[in-house]
Amino acid sequence: MTFVYLIVFGFAATAALGLVTSWIDRKVTARVQYRVGPPFLQPFIDIVKLLGKETVIPAGASRGTFLMAPVIGLAGVVAAATLFWVNQFFEGGFMGDWIVAIYLLTVPSLSIILGGFASRNPLASLGASREMKLVMAYELPFILATLVPVIWAGDLSISGIIENQSDGITAGHLSGIIALIVALLCVQAKLALVPFDIPEAETEIVEGPLVEYSGPGLAVFRLMKNMLLFTLPFFLIILFFGGMRLNGINILWTLLEYVGIVALITVIRNTNPRVRIDQAVRFFWGPMTVLATAAVVLALNGI
């Protein structure tokens, strides 16, 4: 029974916080652009509205795969979020470790790719192939960068990583800072935000893999993306700031860290143009990998 509560909490809390984060993102974006921005409930209203819309399925597409894809992605995020919540607030933690987290966090991308492929639309196929290339690109530095906290903690499990940071967070070390920067940019790509919104480049390939989705399918995808918008910063906080601490003054710190990460993501997205896919791959396999490797080497040497 506890388990059911956990999952419901993992889903509901993540969804709620994700939608709020999405609002923050949109609002900050609007403010940067001298606009007013959407009302607070807007992301939530969007989802409800999409649920009420008709579902259209592209002719000749595989109906099953087309409709399954968003659900698979949602399941991936729910699992990843639950994993983090459980390890954050349960003594000892269970279910999985750093490796599991990394793998679970690729499931949303996978679902977008599958959905794009199933759409029978050349633009969606192209977008999905770009998404895949992007995954290949950022995975290498992301693994390296998130390995730094693991090295510092000397423990693979998420709860162990959190516990071992109680007397000194990863971001307090030089290697931690470098890794954080790399991981942040990888998160930007994972969220498919500018400058790495290449797969969904609206003005090139019309939302890419999502082009054919409407109604509930799109609602689930959007919900998934909004949940990711919370889950990934959460993951970073766990890795680099020792998790969310909800006691006393630490609440403020946690909030600050979270809002800081989200604000950084938003600012990056608003001050850059979209890059080309080959530039993105070069960027991640070149400077980012070098930086991440340097961070790992530093961490191994205790700097």
Binding site: L50, L51, G52, K53, E54, T55, V56, I57, P58, A59, G60, A61, R63, L67, S119, R120, N121, P122, L123, V206, V211, E212, G215, P216, A219
Partner: peptide, 13 residues
């Protein structure tokens, strides 16, 4: 949502 009465339409290109 409205998943049960899905309509099949041409892809948007």
């Amino acid at each position: 949502g409205s998943i049960r009465k899905a309509r099949i339409v041409a892809p948007f290109i």
